[in-house]
Design a protein around this nucleic acid. Sequence first.
DNA 1: TTGAAAGCGATACCAT
DNA 2: ATGGTATCGCTTTCAA
Lengths: 334, 334
Amino acid sequence: MATIYQVSELAGVSLATVSRVMNNNARVSEATRNKVLAAMEQLGYRPNSIAQSLASNRSNSVGILVSELHGPFYGEMLSGIENECRAAGKHVIIAAGHSEEASEKDGIEFLISRSCDALILHVEAVSDDYLIKLAAGNLPIVLINRYIPQLQDNCICLNNELGGYLATKQLLAQGHTQLAYISGPMWKSDAKDRYAGHLRAMAEFGVRFDTLLFAQGDFQDSSGSSCMQQLLAQGQAFTALVCANDEMAAGAMEVAREHGLQVPQQLSIVGFDNLILARYIHPKLTTIDYPIGEMGRMAARWVLKNIYQQQALQLKNVFEPVVVWRESAAAPVR
Amino acid sequence: MATIYQVSELAGVSLATVSRVMNNNARVSEATRNKVLAAMEQLGYRPNSIAQSLASNRSNSVGILVSELHGPFYGEMLSGIENECRAAGKHVIIAAGHSEEASEKDGIEFLISRSCDALILHVEAVSDDYLIKLAAGNLPIVLINRYIPQLQDNCICLNNELGGYLATKQLLAQGHTQLAYISGPMWKSDAKDRYAGHLRAMAEFGVRFDTLLFAQGDFQDSSGSSCMQQLLAQGQAFTALVCANDEMAAGAMEVAREHGLQVPQQLSIVGFDNLILARYIHPKLTTIDYPIGEMGRMAARWVLKNIYQQQALQLKNVFEPVVVWRESAAAPVR
DNA sequence: TTGAAAGCGATACCAT
DNA sequence: ATGGTATCGCTTTCAA
């Protein structure tokens, strides 16, 4: 591999000049620039990114931590980030945190040790305090789907409360008055917010919230099933079910089917997230869209703008979810 | 951040010695080693991986190219790779190739420019020749799901022919004699191999292959739907349908439902890949397991063994698929 | 077993 | 506008 030395020699200019044309920041005369470019071409020169990093103290790499690499959710996010970063010539180093505190910290440590210029984090187990301290260091971080007031500007979030509100509101607007709710684990802020939105819609329509029609799941499809069973066992009638995410909705729908309940004729079901599976299950799931890919892109742009000085980029911190109409929800028959 | 200089000074030893204890390859006396370790501890020293790379000419990073970052398939693969690599302290740089030749080449160029020590490639559009040439260079590559005789040892593959054989054989063994087949695009070797396996099973059971009961899709679910429609339109009866992947099976199943066909009572359907969605659709899909996560791990081990000298690792180049029994296939009713 | 010193391939400051 | 040179933090001979 050719080095900058050979280029400078062949072009008959100094090291510094070659460096200048590479980073075309300083003014170089047209003639010199062309000589250098020609020499590079001739040698098939490619800058050594590691040497660049050492000298410039910039690795041009951004670290990403997600809970899992597989699954229906993170792929979209990574995809959005990778797209945006690669177009800017930055690369992406990925680690998984497995929703466990130790593992998340470990992943972050790992990324730090690879000298990333910034970190994009989708963490769940680590504490606010930890993140605040981390952000106070000299490595910039962006948080996806996590809101910490002190780190406001670094957070890219979905308005989960609004999503929860919309999910319930559409059902109410269709005339349902007996709604059940399966929530996520309440220690997760998104679960809490979605639930809050549900309650707001209920209040707005003057529909009484019935604790018998509430069950708390853990965002997995199996918990959707068990919660649904529990709800059915209460004996309290309901014509609509709101689930805090699609996977639980899928689990609940399966149980409904086993109980001979027709969806949506006898029971309307809505989910949240708009995962791929929402289109595969039958009937197709009406749900709330979570633009996680777009949010990933936005996190990447945040980094591009704040770390790599691409000033022109427009940033947005909170995204508004919308309803995706499909087949699993309809007006109640009376 | 502390550097090796400060460590050496605090420990009262030379640079070289500090380096030795870090890479504990050369013999260092117990006493010296402890002094150095203590100094590191005290300073909170972390080696600068970039400087290490520049000096040692090893970046300790492996480049991965997949077609897409999202989707049900690559996530599993990435997950397997990341796991294995991180445990070995190597990091993973990821790029997407979008199943397009230009984009794949571009991605590979990008990874090369980041000085990866090796590349793990899941490419579809790029030619064998290109890969052979690439492999002849000084950057080692591993190929997942692609078999090139000249690069045999670098290929981690599934025995697709066997998978196709098993999928069809189970149906035949249950007594089906009228089988339809929806293939993938025949220019992809896995599609071709799966189909070959199908034919072998048919021949083995003395069942005649009927071209009216064959349709070629493109591995997407929408093509599963259209192929199913086409098959149904032929008017040729069949009691079982083999699809070359799960997504097409899902598409076909939807069309079957629209036509009022009971699965599996009136029509058995089997897929291939064992994606998550196979468990979400109804009835749950009987399919062939594609251990892509395991294969990702294996690719990573290949790199660990051949590039990072972890001699002890056991390697395996071809994986054998197995049948996953679920609900979508049953004996024909007569 | 340990130390001295020459790179690795760029960047960036200071001159000119 | 261009050149000289110190520097980034570590690895790796070569000597001692």
